[in-house]
């Protein structure tokens, strides 16, 4: 294969700078010792990181996001497994329509979902509740969970299960000892991708989160609406650091290429 020429490498460098610039700037400004936004700063301090501790709403929002992400992703994976098995292994009437329905949260603008959920939850009395947030987040992350569980269900070589059956394993044993262990990596990566998407979601959540249930991105968004100051940069820097740590861990565990691109595109 031919290599990238010097022009290509210069272009690539500029492109990477473009992609990283805003993220680097946020982290940089977070270390300012000043009481106002000043960039570029040459001095640095942890003053604004310590300041986070004095704003309990950010801390509680963080835990809120963490719990919401973990729970809704787990439930989404739980709902997606039987659906993935049906789609991957059976040819039945309406299969494409069901798949399209389950993937539809990717197609529907989140702003529309947010409005629909707000209307719906207000009617049934779940407005601003944690239950409502969980339900909404299950829907929003469902396509991500389904895509990866589907990929692992499709990737599963059925002759492996047939081999187990021929060796005398019961259906239950096959499921427990062969099928599940083989799909667990797919489930785990599906959960992880769902979790990240839940953790970052702001557009839909901003409509349905109440004062007591606001997630971290919602808090940050509402804060920025009023004022941009070094506090919100230090909070953002923490979010970025956590995400990067999570990404590196995920990359080590599964390979991010695979996770982001997905292997089976049957579900789309």
């Amino acid at each position: 294969m031919s290599k990238n020429g010097p022009i290509a490498l210069i272009y690539h460098t500029l492109f990477v700078i473009f992609m990283l610039a805003p993220i680097v700037v946020v982290c940089w400004v977070a270390f300012t010792p000043e009481g106002f936004l000043s960039f570029p700063t040459t001095d640095w301090s942890l003053r604004w990181f310590r300041a986070i501790a004095r704003y309990p709403e950010f801390i509680s929002a963080f835990w809120q996001s963490l719990g919401l992400g973990a729970l809704s992703s787990a439930l989404a994976v739980g709902f997606s497994v039987p659906a993935a098995l049906a789609i991957a292994r059976h040819r039945f009437r309406g299969r494409e329509a069901f798949t399209a329905l389950f993937m539809s949260p990717l197609m529907i603008p989140y702003i529309v979902l947010g409005i629909a959920f707000l209307r719906f939850f207000t009617e049934i009395g779940l407005s601003g509740s944690f239950t409502g947030l969980v339900l909404a987040h299950i829907i929003v992350v469902f396509p991500f969970a389904l895509r990866l569980t589907l990929a692992s269900a499709i990737g599963l070589d059925r002759s492996i299960e047939h081999a187990a059956v021929s060796l005398g394993a019961s259906e239950w044993t096959v499921l427990k000892r062969v099928t599940l262990p083989l799909v667990v990596p797919g489930l785990a990566s599906g959960w992880a991708l769902a979790f990240i998407n839940s953790f970052d979601e702001v557009t839909m959540t901003v409509f349905i989160a109440g004062p007591g249930t606001a997630t971290l991105p919602v808090r940050m968004f509402l804060y920025i609406q009023d004022n941009i100051d070094p506090l919100v940069t230090s909070v953002s820097a923490c979010v970025i650091a956590i995400t990067v740590a999570g990404l590196v861990a995920l990359d080590r565990a599964y390979g991010l290429e695979r996770l982001l691109v997905g292997r089976g595109h049957d579900g789309r």
């Binding site: 946020v26 919100v232 979010v239 970025i240 995400t243 990404l247 982001l260």
Partner: peptide, 21 residues
């Protein structure tokens, strides 16, 4: 990873970066 990673960082944090820039 460098180019796709930002996809997974909160859009609020990324936009804040542009507001600063």
């Amino acid at each position: 990873l460098v180019i796709l990673g930002p996809l997974l960082i909160s859009v609020v944090a990324r936009t804040l970066g542009w507001a600063l820039l």
